[in-house]
Write a protein that binds this DNA or RNA. Sequence first.
RNA 1: GGUCCCAUCGUCUAACGGUUAGGACGCCAGGUUCUCAUCCUGGUAAUAGGGGUUCGAUUCCCCUUGGGACUACCA
Length: 446
Amino acid sequence: KGKFILRLEDTDQKREIEGALDKLLNILNWVGIEFDEGPHTTGNFGPYVQTERLNVYKKHIDELLQEKKVYRCFCTEERLTDMRLAQEARKEAPRYDKLCRHLSASEINERLKSGEPFVIRQKMPRDGHVIVHDEIRGDIDFKASDLDDQVLIKSNGIPTYQFANIVDDHLMQITHVTRGDEWLSSFPKNILLYQAFNWQPPKYIHLPLILNKTGGKLSKRQGDVFAEQFRDKGYLPEAIINFCALLGWHGKNDQEIYSLKELEKSFSIDGIGASPAIFDLEKLDYYNGYYIRQKSITQLAELCRPYLENTGHEIKDQKKLEGFVSLAQDRMKKLEDVVELTDFLYTEKQYEQSLLCWKNLSVEDAKNNLKLINSELEKIEEENWQKEYLENTIISWIKEQGMKNGDYLWPLRVALTGLKNSPGPFEVASVLGKNESLLRLERALK
RNA sequence: GGUCCCAUCGUCUAACGGUUAGGACGCCAGGUUCUCAUCCUGGUAAUAGGGGUUCGAUUCCCCUUGGGACUACCA
């Protein structure tokens, strides 16, 4: 029942990607997640883009500068990297040596006057402990001396995430921060910043990471997942939402199927676990198949249409499309599967004659049975060419012959589909229509 | 290397001191059936190891081991 706010943290301009905001909005909108406030809508706490808030950060960093809670650092990149390398060589934790923390006021002024570039660093306490509270893990104890004097303002005047995020969260009256586990190690520094400002920090919920199958951090930067790729393959929003929600969260009972609406009702922080989860595609496929089966034929046909059109099939007849799709529905894991699953309907398959034989039937027997069934089918009126009618009449006809279903149905199905495995003959015949069905039988009999 | 986090079936997880350790996916088997899929039924499979605390530990504590994150003028 809260508000969901989108803020663009674009302080690293090197990594800025053209059109990223639209993509992000699109994909979130696609899965049904909407923002109450953000750059695209209204809200009372704008601007919602960090690079448009530089004056805000300036004001706040000046305040801390005044109170000596932060300091200017003139160290060059060379000095910093040399130091880090040396520390690593000595197997020490790489950390800033606080050289500029003790610059005299006059020296600072001099260096400022001469135009030396500088960053602004956060002063960490020399000793003591910082105990922070995470809603999932409880209290976490950090030794202050382990904390680095991290950069708050870069030499280009733009703040780092570590600074802008805290200022904005406070100013925008954020009450709950849910972020990935990877932020846990900077958590104490964040809390220290709140204390420097004398602000009350929001509640923090550090979500367990989602790992890829090799056990590493699942990351778009590493090319593991693009939501767009899942969408393009034909994963449904319902499936993705359901699957992701259950990665690290569990409701009060054994329910496994959740819609977004249900999640809004049932989701609570205390259902979130602390251990990381591996992203397992097989379960996602299960959910996707499940939600595909839940669709009405009309809905599913529309969802499948672009995939079919993409392979060059011209779709003029809506009824025919729905018929084809209905044969694939129970068999699809994702929408793109429709192409392969309906291929035999669009184009007749080549097959070995021996495929017509069921169990011990010879090719002659099979063809003979086909001939008999062909003449029965021919008798059926066009307007009765429906699955149920076909099934009823043919099955009872077979019974009258005192024969086994398989003796006739297998050859019939193969003649219609050309496939070892396929949907049943009556549904295929019905979807194909009388004309095409008899044509395929005729070719089989040649 | 340092700091921090994590640890139940292969995977996602339930059991918040007392259960034959439950559910889901997967896998296997059976049923329905002309095949495949769907559907139904059943089965397989786990508390990482070692110490404590306790009448009793999956559960609380410690150690070990393993995995992960962070360690940037990136987020």
